[in-house]
Design a protein around this nucleic acid. Structure first.
Length: 566
RNA sequence: GCCUCGGUAGCUCAGCCUGGAUAGAGCACUGGCCUUCUAAGUCAGGGGUCGCAGGUUCAAAUCCUGUCCGGGGCGCCA
Protein backbone atom coordinates (compact mmCIF):
# COMPACT_ATOMS: atom_id res chain seq x y z
CA UNK A 1 0.00 0.00 0.00
CA UNK A 2 2.70 2.44 1.01
CA UNK A 3 4.63 1.79 -2.18
CA UNK A 4 1.59 2.49 -4.32
CA UNK A 5 0.96 5.74 -2.46
CA UNK A 6 4.60 6.72 -2.70
CA UNK A 7 4.84 6.32 -6.45
CA UNK A 8 1.50 8.07 -6.91
CA UNK A 9 2.70 11.03 -4.87
CA UNK A 10 6.09 11.07 -6.53
CA UNK A 11 4.52 11.47 -9.93
CA UNK A 12 2.04 14.12 -8.79
CA UNK A 13 4.73 16.13 -7.04
CA UNK A 14 6.89 15.93 -10.15
CA UNK A 15 4.06 17.34 -12.22
CA UNK A 16 4.21 20.33 -9.89
CA UNK A 17 7.85 20.76 -10.77
CA UNK A 18 9.47 19.24 -7.68
CA UNK A 19 11.28 15.96 -7.81
CA UNK A 20 11.75 13.82 -4.73
CA UNK A 21 13.17 10.38 -4.10
CA UNK A 22 10.94 7.52 -2.94
CA UNK A 23 12.45 7.44 0.56
CA UNK A 24 11.89 11.15 0.99
CA UNK A 25 8.18 10.63 0.40
CA UNK A 26 7.61 7.32 2.11
CA UNK A 27 9.01 8.40 5.46
CA UNK A 28 6.22 10.96 5.82
CA UNK A 29 3.33 8.61 5.10
CA UNK A 30 1.45 7.95 8.31
CA UNK A 31 -1.71 6.48 9.78
CA UNK A 32 -4.30 9.19 10.50
CA UNK A 33 -5.74 9.51 14.01
CA UNK A 34 -9.29 8.53 13.04
CA UNK A 35 -10.96 6.50 10.28
CA UNK A 36 -12.90 9.40 8.80
CA UNK A 37 -9.52 10.86 7.86
CA UNK A 38 -8.69 7.80 5.83
CA UNK A 39 -6.28 4.93 6.22
CA UNK A 40 -3.04 6.59 5.17
CA UNK A 41 -2.11 10.21 5.05
CA UNK A 42 0.59 12.46 3.74
CA UNK A 43 1.35 15.79 5.45
CA UNK A 44 2.62 18.50 3.13
CA UNK A 45 4.24 20.90 5.61
CA UNK A 46 7.76 19.90 4.69
CA UNK A 47 7.22 20.99 1.08
CA UNK A 48 6.68 24.64 2.05
CA UNK A 49 10.14 25.72 1.03
CA UNK A 50 10.12 23.88 -2.26
CA UNK A 51 6.61 24.93 -3.27
CA UNK A 52 6.75 28.41 -1.71
CA UNK A 53 3.06 28.13 -0.86
CA UNK A 54 0.76 27.51 2.06
CA UNK A 55 0.70 23.85 3.02
CA UNK A 56 -3.05 23.42 2.45
CA UNK A 57 -2.58 24.86 -1.03
CA UNK A 58 0.23 22.38 -1.67
CA UNK A 59 -2.01 19.50 -0.66
CA UNK A 60 -4.67 20.64 -3.10
CA UNK A 61 -2.14 21.09 -5.92
CA UNK A 62 -0.75 17.61 -5.44
CA UNK A 63 -4.19 16.07 -5.14
CA UNK A 64 -5.26 17.69 -8.41
CA UNK A 65 -2.37 16.10 -10.25
CA UNK A 66 -3.49 12.64 -9.16
CA UNK A 67 -5.83 11.84 -12.01
CA UNK A 68 -6.92 8.34 -11.16
CA UNK A 69 -7.66 6.60 -7.89
CA UNK A 70 -5.62 3.38 -8.15
CA UNK A 71 -6.84 -0.13 -7.59
CA UNK A 72 -7.30 -1.06 -3.97
CA UNK A 73 -8.34 2.45 -3.02
CA UNK A 74 -11.76 4.02 -2.90
CA UNK A 75 -10.93 7.68 -2.44
CA UNK A 76 -8.24 10.32 -2.03
CA UNK A 77 -9.15 13.55 -0.23
CA UNK A 78 -7.41 16.53 1.25
CA UNK A 79 -7.93 17.95 4.70
CA UNK A 80 -5.89 21.03 5.47
CA UNK A 81 -2.27 20.23 4.81
CA UNK A 82 -2.95 16.51 4.59
CA UNK A 83 -3.70 14.28 1.65
CA UNK A 84 -5.76 11.36 2.93
CA UNK A 85 -5.97 7.99 1.22
CA UNK A 86 -8.94 5.70 1.74
CA UNK A 87 -8.31 2.07 0.91
CA UNK A 88 -11.05 -0.19 -0.36
CA UNK A 89 -12.29 -1.20 3.03
CA UNK A 90 -14.67 -3.91 1.90
CA UNK A 91 -11.92 -5.90 0.22
CA UNK A 92 -9.50 -5.26 3.02
CA UNK A 93 -12.00 -6.37 5.65
CA UNK A 94 -12.71 -9.64 3.91
CA UNK A 95 -9.04 -10.28 3.43
CA UNK A 96 -8.13 -9.62 7.08
CA UNK A 97 -10.98 -11.68 8.52
CA UNK A 98 -10.28 -14.57 6.20
CA UNK A 99 -6.62 -14.54 7.09
CA UNK A 100 -7.41 -14.64 10.82
CA UNK A 101 -9.95 -17.43 10.41
CA UNK A 102 -7.58 -19.56 8.40
CA UNK A 103 -4.42 -19.02 10.44
CA UNK A 104 -6.24 -19.30 13.76
CA UNK A 105 -3.85 -19.57 16.71
CA UNK A 106 -0.94 -18.89 14.37
CA UNK A 107 -2.32 -15.54 13.26
CA UNK A 108 0.27 -12.88 13.99
CA UNK A 109 3.15 -15.31 14.44
CA UNK A 110 6.20 -15.52 12.27
CA UNK A 111 8.93 -18.04 11.92
CA UNK A 112 12.03 -16.51 10.41
CA UNK A 113 13.96 -16.11 13.66
CA UNK A 114 14.86 -19.66 14.65
CA UNK A 115 17.22 -18.85 17.51
CA UNK A 116 17.76 -21.05 20.50
CA UNK A 117 17.10 -18.69 23.35
CA UNK A 118 17.41 -19.19 27.06
CA UNK A 119 15.24 -16.93 29.15
CA UNK A 120 16.15 -16.81 32.79
CA UNK A 121 13.43 -15.48 35.06
CA UNK A 122 11.69 -15.69 38.42
CA UNK A 123 14.86 -16.58 40.42
CA UNK A 124 13.29 -16.71 43.87
CA UNK A 125 15.41 -17.35 46.91
CA UNK A 126 14.58 -20.37 48.97
CA UNK A 127 14.05 -19.77 52.68
CA UNK A 128 12.38 -16.45 51.96
CA UNK A 129 8.92 -15.22 51.06
CA UNK A 130 7.48 -15.39 47.55
CA UNK A 131 5.54 -12.16 47.62
CA UNK A 132 3.51 -10.31 45.01
CA UNK A 133 6.68 -8.52 43.92
CA UNK A 134 8.07 -11.84 42.65
CA UNK A 135 5.03 -12.28 40.45
CA UNK A 136 6.11 -9.36 38.28
CA UNK A 137 9.36 -10.91 37.11
CA UNK A 138 7.78 -14.34 36.76
CA UNK A 139 4.95 -12.93 34.68
CA UNK A 140 7.17 -10.84 32.43
CA UNK A 141 9.47 -13.82 31.91
CA UNK A 142 6.70 -16.22 30.96
CA UNK A 143 5.20 -13.68 28.61
CA UNK A 144 8.54 -13.03 26.90
CA UNK A 145 9.09 -16.77 26.54
CA UNK A 146 5.77 -17.06 24.71
CA UNK A 147 6.49 -14.03 22.55
CA UNK A 148 9.88 -15.44 21.58
CA UNK A 149 8.30 -18.80 20.69
CA UNK A 150 5.55 -17.10 18.71
CA UNK A 151 8.23 -15.40 16.66
CA UNK A 152 9.83 -18.67 15.68
CA UNK A 153 12.47 -19.19 18.36
CA UNK A 154 13.12 -22.25 20.42
CA UNK A 155 12.91 -21.14 24.04
CA UNK A 156 14.44 -22.71 27.12
CA UNK A 157 12.83 -21.38 30.26
CA UNK A 158 15.40 -21.27 33.03
CA UNK A 159 15.05 -20.62 36.71
CA UNK A 160 18.06 -19.83 38.83
CA UNK A 161 17.13 -20.39 42.41
CA UNK A 162 19.06 -18.92 45.29
CA UNK A 163 19.27 -21.98 47.50
CA UNK A 164 22.60 -21.09 49.08
CA UNK A 165 24.39 -18.06 50.35
CA UNK A 166 24.09 -15.78 53.33
CA UNK A 167 20.30 -15.67 53.49
CA UNK A 168 20.16 -19.46 53.78
CA UNK A 169 22.83 -19.43 56.47
CA UNK A 170 20.78 -16.89 58.40
CA UNK A 171 17.65 -19.00 58.14
CA UNK A 172 19.40 -22.21 59.21
CA UNK A 173 21.13 -20.43 62.05
CA UNK A 174 17.89 -18.94 63.34
CA UNK A 175 15.87 -22.14 63.05
CA UNK A 176 18.54 -24.22 64.71
CA UNK A 177 19.10 -21.82 67.55
CA UNK A 178 15.61 -20.55 68.31
CA UNK A 179 12.92 -22.62 66.59
CA UNK A 180 14.21 -26.16 66.68
CA UNK A 181 11.15 -27.40 68.56
CA UNK A 182 8.88 -26.47 65.63
CA UNK A 183 8.47 -29.05 62.91
CA UNK A 184 9.54 -28.06 59.40
CA UNK A 185 6.46 -27.40 57.28
CA UNK A 186 5.65 -26.51 53.70
CA UNK A 187 4.02 -23.27 54.62
CA UNK A 188 5.19 -20.17 52.83
CA UNK A 189 4.38 -17.78 55.60
CA UNK A 190 6.07 -19.92 58.24
CA UNK A 191 9.24 -20.22 56.16
CA UNK A 192 9.22 -16.48 55.62
CA UNK A 193 8.68 -15.78 59.31
CA UNK A 194 11.85 -17.62 60.34
CA UNK A 195 13.88 -15.45 57.99
CA UNK A 196 12.27 -12.29 59.32
CA UNK A 197 13.07 -13.42 62.84
CA UNK A 198 16.70 -14.02 61.88
CA UNK A 199 17.08 -10.50 60.53
CA UNK A 200 15.48 -9.08 63.63
CA UNK A 201 17.78 -10.92 65.99
CA UNK A 202 20.88 -10.11 63.97
CA UNK A 203 20.11 -6.42 63.85
CA UNK A 204 19.76 -6.36 67.64
CA UNK A 205 23.13 -7.95 68.24
CA UNK A 206 25.91 -7.49 65.71
CA UNK A 207 28.10 -10.15 67.28
CA UNK A 208 25.69 -12.92 66.26
CA UNK A 209 26.74 -12.48 62.65
CA UNK A 210 29.94 -14.37 63.48
CA UNK A 211 27.88 -17.49 64.18
CA UNK A 212 26.07 -17.06 60.88
CA UNK A 213 29.35 -16.63 59.01
CA UNK A 214 30.56 -19.88 60.48
CA UNK A 215 27.40 -21.68 59.38
CA UNK A 216 27.70 -20.12 55.94
CA UNK A 217 31.21 -21.48 55.61
CA UNK A 218 30.25 -24.93 56.89
CA UNK A 219 27.32 -25.08 54.51
CA UNK A 220 29.51 -24.04 51.59
CA UNK A 221 32.02 -26.76 52.44
CA UNK A 222 29.30 -29.33 53.17
CA UNK A 223 31.31 -30.20 56.22
CA UNK A 224 28.55 -30.80 58.77
CA UNK A 225 26.09 -33.63 58.26
CA UNK A 226 23.39 -32.24 60.50
CA UNK A 227 23.49 -28.81 58.89
CA UNK A 228 23.47 -30.41 55.48
CA UNK A 229 20.40 -32.46 56.19
CA UNK A 230 18.55 -29.48 57.66
CA UNK A 231 19.48 -27.48 54.58
CA UNK A 232 18.25 -30.18 52.22
CA UNK A 233 14.92 -30.58 53.99
CA UNK A 234 14.14 -26.89 54.36
CA UNK A 235 15.28 -26.21 50.81
CA UNK A 236 12.88 -28.78 49.46
CA UNK A 237 9.96 -27.23 51.32
CA UNK A 238 10.66 -23.90 49.68
CA UNK A 239 11.12 -25.37 46.23
CA UNK A 240 7.92 -27.38 46.49
CA UNK A 241 5.95 -24.32 47.48
CA UNK A 242 7.36 -22.46 44.47
CA UNK A 243 6.27 -25.26 42.14
CA UNK A 244 2.73 -24.97 43.40
CA UNK A 245 2.79 -21.27 42.63
CA UNK A 246 4.20 -21.83 39.14
CA UNK A 247 1.45 -24.32 38.34
CA UNK A 248 -1.16 -21.77 39.33
CA UNK A 249 0.56 -19.08 37.32
CA UNK A 250 0.68 -21.34 34.27
CA UNK A 251 4.45 -21.17 34.11
CA UNK A 252 6.93 -23.97 33.86
CA UNK A 253 10.68 -24.24 33.60
CA UNK A 254 12.75 -26.46 31.37
CA UNK A 255 15.93 -26.00 33.36
CA UNK A 256 16.67 -25.29 36.99
CA UNK A 257 19.99 -23.91 38.06
CA UNK A 258 20.84 -23.74 41.70
CA UNK A 259 23.31 -21.45 43.31
CA UNK A 260 24.48 -24.29 45.49
CA UNK A 261 25.66 -26.07 42.36
CA UNK A 262 27.59 -23.08 41.13
CA UNK A 263 29.87 -22.72 44.17
CA UNK A 264 32.69 -24.85 42.84
CA UNK A 265 32.49 -23.46 39.33
CA UNK A 266 32.35 -19.93 40.73
CA UNK A 267 35.49 -20.58 42.68
CA UNK A 268 37.26 -21.96 39.60
CA UNK A 269 36.12 -18.96 37.63
CA UNK A 270 37.51 -16.55 40.22
CA UNK A 271 40.84 -18.37 40.19
CA UNK A 272 41.05 -18.29 36.44
CA UNK A 273 40.32 -14.57 36.41
CA UNK A 274 43.04 -14.06 38.98
CA UNK A 275 45.49 -16.00 36.84
CA UNK A 276 44.53 -14.00 33.76
CA UNK A 277 45.04 -10.83 35.79
CA UNK A 278 41.53 -9.63 35.15
CA UNK A 279 40.78 -10.03 38.85
CA UNK A 280 43.03 -9.18 41.77
CA UNK A 281 43.22 -9.54 45.53
CA UNK A 282 42.20 -6.56 47.58
CA UNK A 283 41.80 -6.55 51.36
CA UNK A 284 41.84 -10.33 51.23
CA UNK A 285 38.91 -10.56 48.82
CA UNK A 286 39.04 -11.34 45.10
CA UNK A 287 37.77 -8.39 43.10
CA UNK A 288 37.60 -6.97 39.61
CA UNK A 289 38.31 -3.28 39.46
CA UNK A 290 35.87 -1.75 36.98
CA UNK A 291 36.22 1.84 38.16
CA UNK A 292 37.58 3.05 34.87
CA UNK A 293 34.32 1.96 33.23
CA UNK A 294 32.39 3.73 35.95
CA UNK A 295 31.20 0.36 37.24
CA UNK A 296 32.89 0.39 40.62
CA UNK A 297 34.41 -2.72 42.10
CA UNK A 298 32.99 -6.21 41.67
CA UNK A 299 33.70 -8.64 44.46
CA UNK A 300 33.94 -12.29 43.43
CA UNK A 301 35.13 -14.02 46.61
CA UNK A 302 34.82 -12.90 50.20
CA UNK A 303 37.95 -12.67 52.27
CA UNK A 304 37.05 -16.06 53.78
CA UNK A 305 37.11 -17.38 50.19
CA UNK A 306 33.38 -18.18 50.06
CA UNK A 307 31.86 -17.56 46.64
CA UNK A 308 29.61 -14.62 45.88
CA UNK A 309 26.71 -14.30 43.44
CA UNK A 310 28.99 -12.48 40.99
CA UNK A 311 31.38 -15.39 40.47
CA UNK A 312 28.52 -17.89 40.31
CA UNK A 313 26.69 -15.88 37.69
CA UNK A 314 29.84 -15.63 35.63
CA UNK A 315 30.28 -19.39 35.70
CA UNK A 316 26.64 -19.87 34.80
CA UNK A 317 26.88 -17.87 31.57
CA UNK A 318 29.54 -20.22 30.29
CA UNK A 319 27.50 -23.26 31.17
CA UNK A 320 24.42 -21.86 29.46
CA UNK A 321 26.15 -21.39 26.14
CA UNK A 322 28.33 -24.49 26.25
CA UNK A 323 25.99 -27.10 27.64
CA UNK A 324 22.74 -25.92 26.08
CA UNK A 325 24.12 -24.67 22.79
CA UNK A 326 22.01 -21.55 22.93
CA UNK A 327 22.72 -18.53 20.82
CA UNK A 328 20.86 -15.99 22.87
CA UNK A 329 20.70 -15.47 26.60
CA UNK A 330 18.02 -13.27 28.16
CA UNK A 331 17.89 -12.22 31.80
CA UNK A 332 14.66 -10.98 33.32
CA UNK A 333 15.87 -9.49 36.58
CA UNK A 334 14.85 -6.60 38.82
CA UNK A 335 16.45 -3.28 37.98
CA UNK A 336 17.94 -3.11 41.46
CA UNK A 337 20.50 -5.44 39.96
CA UNK A 338 21.30 -3.38 36.89
CA UNK A 339 24.75 -2.58 38.26
CA UNK A 340 25.45 -6.26 38.77
CA UNK A 341 24.34 -6.98 35.21
CA UNK A 342 26.49 -4.21 33.79
CA UNK A 343 29.45 -5.57 35.74
CA UNK A 344 28.72 -9.06 34.49
CA UNK A 345 28.56 -7.99 30.85
CA UNK A 346 31.68 -5.83 31.15
CA UNK A 347 33.63 -8.69 32.71
CA UNK A 348 32.54 -11.05 29.93
CA UNK A 349 33.80 -8.46 27.51
CA UNK A 350 37.16 -8.26 29.30
CA UNK A 351 37.35 -12.06 29.15
CA UNK A 352 36.74 -11.85 25.40
CA UNK A 353 33.71 -14.06 25.84
CA UNK A 354 32.48 -14.39 22.24
CA UNK A 355 28.73 -14.38 22.93
CA UNK A 356 28.61 -11.32 25.14
CA UNK A 357 26.58 -9.42 22.56
CA UNK A 358 23.93 -12.15 22.67
CA UNK A 359 23.35 -11.62 26.36
CA UNK A 360 20.39 -9.33 26.95
CA UNK A 361 19.14 -7.83 30.15
CA UNK A 362 15.44 -7.08 30.62
CA UNK A 363 15.14 -5.05 33.81
CA UNK A 364 11.94 -4.35 35.68
CA UNK A 365 11.20 -2.09 38.62
CA UNK A 366 9.90 -3.22 41.93
CA UNK A 367 6.41 -3.61 43.30
CA UNK A 368 5.94 -1.41 46.34
CA UNK A 369 3.32 -1.08 49.02
CA UNK A 370 1.65 2.29 49.53
CA UNK A 371 3.65 2.39 52.77
CA UNK A 372 6.97 1.75 51.03
CA UNK A 373 9.29 -0.99 49.92
CA UNK A 374 8.24 -4.62 50.03
CA UNK A 375 10.82 -6.63 51.82
CA UNK A 376 11.25 -10.27 52.70
CA UNK A 377 13.76 -9.13 55.31
CA UNK A 378 11.27 -7.25 57.43
CA UNK A 379 8.13 -9.16 56.49
CA UNK A 380 6.61 -5.91 55.16
CA UNK A 381 4.98 -7.53 52.17
CA UNK A 382 2.00 -9.37 50.79
CA UNK A 383 2.65 -13.06 50.35
CA UNK A 384 1.51 -14.59 47.10
CA UNK A 385 -0.36 -17.33 48.94
CA UNK A 386 -2.34 -14.87 51.04
CA UNK A 387 -3.15 -12.62 48.16
CA UNK A 388 -4.27 -15.33 45.74
CA UNK A 389 -6.68 -16.59 48.37
CA UNK A 390 -8.18 -13.17 48.85
CA UNK A 391 -8.61 -12.48 45.16
CA UNK A 392 -10.09 -15.90 44.34
CA UNK A 393 -12.54 -15.53 47.23
CA UNK A 394 -13.62 -12.24 45.76
CA UNK A 395 -13.94 -13.79 42.27
CA UNK A 396 -16.04 -16.62 43.64
CA UNK A 397 -18.38 -14.20 45.30
CA UNK A 398 -18.85 -12.31 42.04
CA UNK A 399 -19.31 -15.47 39.99
CA UNK A 400 -21.94 -16.80 42.37
CA UNK A 401 -23.94 -13.61 41.97
CA UNK A 402 -24.16 -14.32 38.26
CA UNK A 403 -24.27 -18.12 38.27
CA UNK A 404 -25.92 -19.18 41.54
CA UNK A 405 -26.03 -22.85 40.60
CA UNK A 406 -22.50 -23.22 39.27
CA UNK A 407 -20.74 -26.47 40.18
CA UNK A 408 -18.03 -26.38 42.80
CA UNK A 409 -15.39 -27.60 40.38
CA UNK A 410 -16.24 -25.04 37.75
CA UNK A 411 -16.32 -22.31 40.38
CA UNK A 412 -12.80 -23.20 41.55
CA UNK A 413 -11.33 -23.33 38.10
CA UNK A 414 -13.05 -20.21 36.79
CA UNK A 415 -12.26 -18.09 39.82
CA UNK A 416 -8.60 -19.09 39.64
CA UNK A 417 -8.38 -18.23 35.96
CA UNK A 418 -9.98 -14.84 36.48
CA UNK A 419 -7.76 -14.10 39.45
CA UNK A 420 -4.56 -15.09 37.70
CA UNK A 421 -5.55 -13.07 34.64
CA UNK A 422 -6.18 -10.05 36.83
CA UNK A 423 -2.90 -10.35 38.68
CA UNK A 424 -0.87 -10.97 35.54
CA UNK A 425 -2.52 -8.21 33.58
CA UNK A 426 -1.92 -5.71 36.37
CA UNK A 427 1.75 -6.68 36.33
CA UNK A 428 2.09 -6.45 32.56
CA UNK A 429 -0.01 -3.46 31.65
CA UNK A 430 2.49 -0.88 32.66
CA UNK A 431 5.96 -0.08 31.50
CA UNK A 432 8.40 -2.44 33.23
CA UNK A 433 10.61 0.48 34.21
CA UNK A 434 7.85 1.96 36.30
CA UNK A 435 7.47 1.18 39.96
CA UNK A 436 4.12 -0.43 40.71
CA UNK A 437 2.41 0.78 43.83
CA UNK A 438 0.42 -2.26 44.79
CA UNK A 439 -2.97 -1.38 46.19
CA UNK A 440 -5.18 -4.27 47.12
CA UNK A 441 -8.40 -2.41 46.44
CA UNK A 442 -7.20 -1.73 42.86
CA UNK A 443 -6.24 -5.35 42.39
CA UNK A 444 -9.70 -6.40 43.51
CA UNK A 445 -11.39 -4.03 41.09
CA UNK A 446 -12.55 -6.04 38.10
CA UNK A 447 -13.89 -3.04 36.21
CA UNK A 448 -12.27 -0.99 33.49
CA UNK A 449 -8.65 -1.51 32.57
CA UNK A 450 -8.29 -4.95 34.14
CA UNK A 451 -7.66 -8.58 33.31
CA UNK A 452 -11.23 -9.40 34.24
CA UNK A 453 -12.58 -6.89 31.71
CA UNK A 454 -10.61 -8.63 28.98
CA UNK A 455 -11.84 -12.09 29.91
CA UNK A 456 -15.37 -10.76 30.18
CA UNK A 457 -15.20 -9.31 26.70
CA UNK A 458 -13.99 -12.62 25.34
CA UNK A 459 -16.78 -14.52 27.08
CA UNK A 460 -19.45 -12.11 25.85
CA UNK A 461 -18.24 -12.44 22.30
CA UNK A 462 -18.43 -16.18 22.74
CA UNK A 463 -21.98 -16.08 23.91
CA UNK A 464 -23.05 -14.34 20.69
CA UNK A 465 -21.64 -17.23 18.69
CA UNK A 466 -23.24 -19.76 20.95
CA UNK A 467 -26.66 -18.11 20.78
CA UNK A 468 -26.48 -17.76 17.03
CA UNK A 469 -25.51 -21.41 16.82
CA UNK A 470 -24.71 -21.20 13.15
CA UNK A 471 -21.92 -22.56 11.07
CA UNK A 472 -19.78 -19.85 9.56
CA UNK A 473 -20.04 -19.61 5.83
CA UNK A 474 -16.85 -18.96 4.02
CA UNK A 475 -18.34 -16.19 1.96
CA UNK A 476 -19.98 -13.14 3.41
CA UNK A 477 -20.91 -9.70 2.30
CA UNK A 478 -19.74 -6.83 4.47
CA UNK A 479 -22.56 -4.56 3.32
CA UNK A 480 -21.96 -0.90 3.97
CA UNK A 481 -19.31 -0.87 6.67
CA UNK A 482 -20.13 1.02 9.82
CA UNK A 483 -17.60 3.03 11.72
CA UNK A 484 -17.33 0.58 14.63
CA UNK A 485 -16.83 -2.28 12.22
CA UNK A 486 -14.04 -0.48 10.43
CA UNK A 487 -12.34 0.42 13.68
CA UNK A 488 -12.49 -3.15 14.91
CA UNK A 489 -11.12 -4.58 11.69
CA UNK A 490 -8.30 -2.06 11.59
CA UNK A 491 -7.36 -2.92 15.14
CA UNK A 492 -7.36 -6.63 14.31
CA UNK A 493 -5.04 -5.98 11.40
CA UNK A 494 -2.53 -4.25 13.67
CA UNK A 495 -1.90 -7.35 15.78
CA UNK A 496 1.12 -8.47 13.76
CA UNK A 497 2.86 -5.14 14.19
CA UNK A 498 2.19 -5.18 17.90
CA UNK A 499 3.66 -8.67 18.24
CA UNK A 500 6.74 -7.70 16.34
CA UNK A 501 7.13 -4.56 18.42
CA UNK A 502 6.79 -6.52 21.67
CA UNK A 503 9.41 -8.95 20.39
CA UNK A 504 11.80 -6.31 19.18
CA UNK A 505 11.65 -4.30 22.37
CA UNK A 506 11.29 -7.37 24.61
CA UNK A 507 8.37 -5.66 26.26
CA UNK A 508 5.01 -7.40 26.80
CA UNK A 509 3.32 -4.21 27.92
CA UNK A 510 2.54 -3.17 24.33
CA UNK A 511 0.56 -6.40 23.95
CA UNK A 512 -1.29 -5.78 27.19
CA UNK A 513 -2.30 -2.32 26.02
CA UNK A 514 -3.30 -3.69 22.65
CA UNK A 515 -5.47 -6.38 24.20
CA UNK A 516 -7.29 -3.82 26.28
CA UNK A 517 -7.84 -1.42 23.39
CA UNK A 518 -9.10 -4.26 21.24
CA UNK A 519 -11.65 -5.09 23.93
CA UNK A 520 -12.77 -1.49 24.20
CA UNK A 521 -13.36 -1.29 20.47
CA UNK A 522 -15.19 -4.59 20.46
CA UNK A 523 -17.45 -3.51 23.31
CA UNK A 524 -18.36 -0.39 21.39
CA UNK A 525 -19.15 -2.53 18.37
CA UNK A 526 -21.13 -4.90 20.57
CA UNK A 527 -23.36 -2.09 21.75
CA UNK A 528 -23.95 -0.40 18.45
CA UNK A 529 -24.08 -3.34 16.03
CA UNK A 530 -26.49 -6.21 16.70
CA UNK A 531 -25.21 -9.47 15.29
CA UNK A 532 -27.89 -12.11 15.60
CA UNK A 533 -30.72 -11.78 13.07
CA UNK A 534 -29.18 -8.65 11.59
CA UNK A 535 -28.95 -8.22 7.84
CA UNK A 536 -25.21 -8.67 8.04
CA UNK A 537 -25.32 -11.64 10.37
CA UNK A 538 -22.83 -13.76 8.41
CA UNK A 539 -20.29 -10.99 8.21
CA UNK A 540 -20.65 -10.00 11.84
CA UNK A 541 -20.43 -13.58 13.07
CA UNK A 542 -17.19 -13.90 11.14
CA UNK A 543 -15.97 -10.65 12.62
CA UNK A 544 -16.79 -11.75 16.16
CA UNK A 545 -15.03 -15.07 15.55
CA UNK A 546 -11.98 -13.22 14.28
CA UNK A 547 -12.00 -10.92 17.29
CA UNK A 548 -12.10 -13.90 19.64
CA UNK A 549 -9.17 -15.49 17.86
CA UNK A 550 -6.97 -12.42 17.91
CA UNK A 551 -7.83 -11.59 21.51
CA UNK A 552 -7.05 -15.14 22.54
CA UNK A 553 -3.72 -15.06 20.71
CA UNK A 554 -2.90 -11.73 22.24
CA UNK A 555 -3.60 -12.67 25.85
CA UNK A 556 -1.92 -16.04 25.33
CA UNK A 557 1.26 -14.09 24.73
CA UNK A 558 0.73 -12.43 28.09
CA UNK A 559 0.43 -15.84 29.70
CA UNK A 560 -3.28 -15.44 30.29
CA UNK A 561 -5.91 -18.08 29.53
CA UNK A 562 -9.44 -17.16 28.57
CA UNK A 563 -12.72 -18.41 30.03
CA UNK A 564 -15.82 -19.25 28.01
CA UNK A 565 -18.34 -17.94 30.46
CA UNK A 566 -18.18 -15.35 33.18
C1' G B 1 29.34 12.81 44.47
C1' C B 2 28.69 9.28 40.29
C1' C B 3 25.46 5.81 37.47
C1' U B 4 20.45 4.52 36.26
C1' C B 5 15.04 4.71 35.84
C1' G B 6 10.74 7.64 36.44
C1' G B 7 7.94 12.83 36.49
C1' U B 8 1.45 13.51 31.39
C1' A B 9 -6.10 14.92 34.61
C1' G B 10 -7.57 14.51 42.00
C1' C B 11 -5.37 9.15 41.81
C1' U B 12 -3.15 4.98 38.58
C1' C B 13 -1.32 4.87 33.80
C1' A B 14 -0.99 4.82 27.82
C1' G B 15 1.31 7.78 24.07
C1' C B 16 7.93 9.04 23.67
C1' C B 17 11.78 4.17 20.23
C1' U B 18 9.89 5.93 14.54
C1' G B 19 8.19 14.39 15.81
C1' G B 20 2.56 15.86 12.51
C1' A B 21 -4.39 16.93 12.36
C1' U B 22 -8.60 18.55 18.91
C1' A B 23 -2.78 14.88 24.28
C1' G B 24 -5.85 9.25 25.27
C1' A B 25 -7.69 5.43 28.96
C1' G B 26 -9.15 3.49 33.77
C1' C B 27 -10.46 4.77 38.88
C1' A B 28 -13.11 8.53 41.52
C1' C B 29 -17.25 12.27 40.67
C1' U B 30 -22.26 13.89 37.93
C1' G B 31 -26.22 12.25 34.69
C1' G B 32 -28.51 8.53 31.00
C1' C B 33 -29.02 3.09 29.14
C1' C B 34 -30.87 -3.95 31.34
C1' U B 35 -39.05 -6.71 27.80
C1' U B 36 -33.22 -6.64 22.51
C1' C B 37 -26.44 -11.06 21.60
C1' U B 38 -23.80 -11.43 29.85
C1' A B 39 -24.58 -3.98 33.27
C1' A B 40 -17.46 -7.48 35.30
C1' G B 41 -20.74 -3.54 30.03
C1' U B 42 -22.00 1.16 27.48
C1' C B 43 -23.15 6.57 26.35
C1' A B 44 -22.63 11.74 27.88
C1' G B 45 -20.18 15.53 31.19
C1' G B 46 -16.57 18.22 34.19
C1' G B 47 -11.20 17.78 35.04
C1' G B 48 -4.39 18.82 31.60
C1' U B 49 1.28 25.16 32.23
C1' C B 50 2.65 16.82 29.27
C1' G B 51 8.17 18.81 36.24
C1' C B 52 10.92 23.50 34.75
C1' A B 53 14.19 26.33 31.29
C1' G B 54 16.65 26.65 26.80
C1' G B 55 17.68 24.55 21.79
C1' U B 56 16.68 21.89 16.91
C1' U B 57 12.34 21.96 13.41
C1' C B 58 7.41 24.35 8.94
C1' A B 59 5.77 21.32 13.43
C1' A B 60 8.00 18.94 20.14
C1' A B 61 4.53 15.20 25.40
C1' U B 62 7.84 12.86 21.61
C1' C B 63 14.61 14.63 19.56
C1' C B 64 19.13 17.45 22.05
C1' U B 65 21.27 20.25 26.39
C1' G B 66 20.78 21.98 31.22
C1' U B 67 18.07 21.91 35.76
C1' C B 68 14.66 20.46 39.83
C1' C B 69 11.90 16.49 42.34
C1' G B 70 11.24 11.10 43.37
C1' G B 71 12.74 5.57 43.07
C1' G B 72 16.90 2.22 42.68
C1' G B 73 22.18 1.25 42.71
C1' C B 74 27.44 2.40 43.81
C1' G B 75 33.45 -3.49 47.90
C1' C B 76 32.73 -8.59 50.61
C1' C B 77 23.64 -9.47 50.41
C1' A B 78 21.36 -11.61 46.11
Amino acid sequence: MKQIITSLLKEAIKKNGVSLRNEEIEKFIEIPPSPELGDYSFPCFFLIEKFKQEPSRIALDIRRKITKVPEGFQDIQTSGAYINFFVNRKDLSKQIIQEILSKKEKYGSFSQEKNKVMIEFSQPNTHKAFHVGHIRGTTIGESLARIFEFCGNEVIRANYQGDSGMHVAKWIWCYKKYHKKQKLKEDESWIASIYVDAIKRLSKNEKLQEQVDLINKMLAERSDKELDSLWKKSRKLSLDSFEKIYRELNTHFDVYFFESEMEKRGLDMAEKLLKDEIAKISEGAVIIDLKKYNLGVWVLLRKDQTVLYSAKDLALVKEKFEKFKINRNVYVIGSAQSMHMAQLFKTLELMNFPKVKECKYVPFSEVRLPTGKMSSRTGENILYSDFIKEITDYSKKEIKKRFPSISKKELESRSLKISIASIKYSMLKQNPNKVIIFKKEDALNFEGDSGAYILYTYARAGSILEKANKKLKEKFDTGKLEEKEIELIKKLSQFKDVVSNAYKTMNPNVLANYSYQLCQIFNEFYHSCPVIDSEKEQFRLSLVTALRQVLKNSVYLLGISTVEEM
